[in-house]
Design a protein around this nucleic acid. Structure first.
Lengths: 149, 149
DNA sequence: TTCTATAATTAGAATTGTTCTATAATTATA
DNA sequence: TATAATTATAGAACAATTCTAATTATAGAA
């Protein structure tokens, strides 16, 4: 597990005008350590609760909202149930398998995207979400059908 | 309000193997009549309930799931709270204002989008969701700041 | 340091979109 | 018709999130 300099993270929050409380530093550290797994609020809570026994879910939600508003993280709902949080690195899309729920990042060149009619819109977050069936589940289905016949 | 031939809608469901019950026809009719407003399940329920007094929310949800599975509608969560349903017409993106909640469709050429690593993935739904501040809210903010000074 | 105002955190209740469950109604088919 | 399968219903249950009121932590002033 990659480790991050806590002072670096502290500075990151301070430049955005967010007071670097212990809880916020821990959430930010967790997000850095899980850059590509787009964790849920509950996952972050579960991971940090042992270390911070008094931790409240409300703090996690407050913190994530704050981070999102300040553009430190990107949030999205991939399944319509729970919200996931991603550290901004570069634009990428998300594919979610409707069968097994697996989520896969894929690179995307947003620059290629022609968009008309958004000239005066201040775009803060961009999400590209595809859903369908992943190769594993496709093969699984084929096998099952094969067995039946 | 545009009207649609009920027999056409009936045929549409039958070709997908969905039994065209009265409730399902009504939901599909509603979706056709509100192609660009991406209604929520609750909005559809509220609109149809007066006409079908015994209508249950569960029916709306069951119906929308069925439509989505059969590719008749596209569903997405724009705000992380409620799911919205869109008739597939052509690919378009959605912009949602974080202040006023306004949702705007914008044309998108998905063909331009370079995507690597999804070769064996069966993609059924594609959603492009941008969030930020709409021009009205941007102007509003400017005015308020101006008044203060 | 101590005081004060403000901001952050907490526990748990409340809310809300959605799903589940058991039953009733409808439809298809024998 | 009788029977089976599907669909619809009402309302309870559920789970992610937000809210509330009280407590704690912090920064800056005295």
């Amino acid at each position: 597990m990659e480790t991050y300099d806590i002072n670096q993270i502290k500075a990151e929050l301070e430049t955005k005008g967010i007071r670097p409380s212990f809880q916020r530093l821990k959430v930010m550290e967790y997000l850095h350590q899980h850059k590509n797994t787009h964790p849920t609020a509950e996952e972050i809570y579960a991971a940090l609760a042992p270390e911070i026994p008094t931790l409240s879910r409300a703090t996690i939600y407050n913190t994530l909202h704050s981070f999102s508003e300040h553009g430190l993280v990107n949030c999205m709902s991939l399944d319509g149930i729970e919200t996931r949080y991603d550290m901004w690195i570069e634009h990428h899309g998300h594919f979610r398998c409707e069968k097994c729920g697996m989520i896969r990042n894929f690179p995307v060149k947003l620059g290629d995207l022609q968009m008309d009619g958004l000239e005066h819109y201040e775009i803060k977050h961009r999400n590209i979400i595809f859903t369908g069936i992943c190769p594993d589940c496709t093969n699984q289905t084929k096998l099952e059908k094969g067995d039946e016949q």
